[in-house]
Design a protein around this nucleic acid. Structure first.
Length: 271
DNA sequence: CCGGATGTTCACCT
DNA sequence: GAGGTGAACATCCG
């Protein structure tokens, strides 16, 4: 479920574990442990350590401990459960399913509580001391100058650039469609084709969208969300939405107010 | 039955 | 090198 907004909800839930000591680690799924270590090594590294803080960078949730830093990635279907209650009242994969086989990683604490990751599709993972620098700045924090540089330095489609976690961390498919829809920008435009003014305006829209959807409770609470389906219409002007694949992801946009061409420049007509 | 789905990584093309 | 595509992960939904 997670884009940065969902992971932030998870982080707040994980904050409840700060100060507790890890008494036991269950890592039943080798494949879920990224970066090589076997379950015994992970258990040895974490058992007895105390959680001292939580952080988030993009979609990566970080638990600082008195030992290693623990990095949690949720993929599309990972959910966090702290002390027996889901951090997010399951929306997708609702139907309230909770197959024990989906439990991929568990920390048990000295106070009897536990932090559990459930992930039916195993798209997420757990890593000790993850390389945080492989991620760009968090989308909610990136400065105007850096953001402008990120866009100016690539010919990739705008949407692909915004979702490139190494450049800018946190935006997923839904949030990015919503932001570009609100900004009135075509997701397929080359990132570098934006003017400095457009880039600055996009950053403002990005920040306000993150703020608003965060308050509403998640990436799926956007104004565009219900129309993100075949034959969906733009909630703004009623136009039939365009459905394309951009950056490898299904993309909806409004051909009317997210026009593919920058406002025609009649001058500079050569030949 | 088939195609997609809030994601990431990797191999393989162009 | 930069982008793009498809596969893999495994389950649910329309």
């Amino acid at each position: 479920m997670p884009e940065m907004l969902e992971v932030e909800i998870y982080r707040r839930a994980a904050e409840l574990t700060v100060g507790r000591r890890i008494t036991e680690v269950h890592a039943p799924d080798d494949w879920y442990l990224k970066g090589g270590p076997d379950p015994a090594a992970v258990r040895a590294a974490l058992r007895g350590q105390r959680v001292i803080g939580t952080r988030r960078r993009g979609k990566l949730l970080l638990l600082d401990t008195s030992g290693p830093v623990l990095g949690l990635r949720f993929g599309m279907t990972g959910v966090l459960d702290v002390d027996g209650s889901d951090a997010i009242d399951a929306l997708e994969y609702a139907s309230g399913r909770r197959d024990p086989a989906w439990e991929r990683f568990v920390l048990q604490f000295d106070d009897g509580g536990a932090l559990r990751m459930r992930d039916p599709r195993r798209l997420g993972g757990v890593e000790l001391d993850p390389d945080e620098e492989r991620l760009g700045p968090d989308a909610a924090e990136v400065g105007a100058t850096r953001f402008a540089e990120i866009l100016a330095s690539s010919s990739a489609p705008l949407k692909a650039r915004l979702m490139d976690q190494a450049q800018l961390a946190g935006l997923g498919n839904l949030l990015t469609d919503e932001i570009l829809w609100r900004a009135g920008l075509d997701p397929a435009r080359p990132a570098a084709s934006l003017s400095a003014e457009e880039a600055a305006a996009l950053r403002r829209t990005m920040r306000s969208t993150i703020r608003v959807l965060g308050r509403r409770g998640g990436s799926h609470r956007g104004d565009l969300q219900e129309s993100r389906q075949r034959q969906g219409r733009c909630p703004l002007d009623g136009e039939l939405l365009l459905r394309r694949t951009i950056g490898g992801r299904t993309t909806y946009s409004c051909p009317r107010h997210q026009p593919s061409l920058p406002p025609a420049s009649p001058s500079r007509r050569r030949r």
